[in-house]
Amino acid sequence: MEMVKVENLAFEYIRRDEEGNVESINRAIDGVNLDVKKGDFIAVLGANGSGKSTLAKHINAILYPTEGTVWVNGLNTSEEQNIWEIRRSAGMVFQNPDNQIVATVVEEDVGFGPENLGVPTDEIWQRVEKSLEAVNMLEHRDKSPNKLSGGQKQRVAIAGIMAMKPECIVLDEPTAMLDPDGRNDVISTIHKLNQQDNITVILITHHMSEVINADKVFVMNKGQVVLQGSPREIFSEVDKLKSYRLDVPQVTELAYELRKAGLDIPKGILYVEELVEALGKIKR
């Protein structure tokens, strides 16, 4: 069964003036179809304003479709009685680590979700411990979130979602405000959760290097899905990606330029080693 199924989704931000007349309509998402299988690691790429964050908010039932339907775990997000179950099963991590931590102590923040779900006290403690361990933050459990680095805060936010025992995590540009170290920590943490706990991951990002290990990549532009496939397939389309204002990883770009210059190098190179190997094969 599909974890997330999006069918002909469209969403409009409507701007009204003071009298309530419609001033302008911005169609942020325009006819998106998307299937995510359980246990998949999905990446959604797109430049600013491509509609990728709007899409993410639909999966967590924070926004409701203007047209079309979104199913999460078989539940329709447009039906009000499903909201809480959807928000539990598809947790969401946001961009700014400071603005999503509620409590003044790490462990209490992780316990916030289970508290809202009405989980008994003893079980909250077990879940908090397990979730903090899963993101490797157990030693910081008594600290104030203000004393943590950006990457650590983001891992606490992920633990806060994990404590609600979700089947799926949606991450909306979780690394945009982090330094490279914090970025690596967060990305490797979500890969670990994907592999060990079989959590479906939907990673929204504009950092190309983060999508290389994804199972499937969707590229969005102007509210539509314009490319989809494996990372290798996506990165073969350097020209197209550039026209969507996206950068490709350095190696891929170098390989692409060399290929364009006439060297015999395969399309869609993702790793440095690959390029080295391909270059080695070329006979002088």
């Binding site: 924070i62 969401m92 700014n96 603005n99 999503q100 809202n116 009405g118 006290t121």
Partner: peptide, 22 residues
């Protein structure tokens, strides 16, 4: 942002809430 993050974590006021540290 915080209000959205809290809603995303199923916060819906005090009703039916349990306490981690009662």
């Amino acid at each position: 942002d915080l209000a959205m993050a809290m809603e995303a974590r199923c916060y819906r006021g005090g009703e039916g809430r349990t306490k981690m540290k009662p």
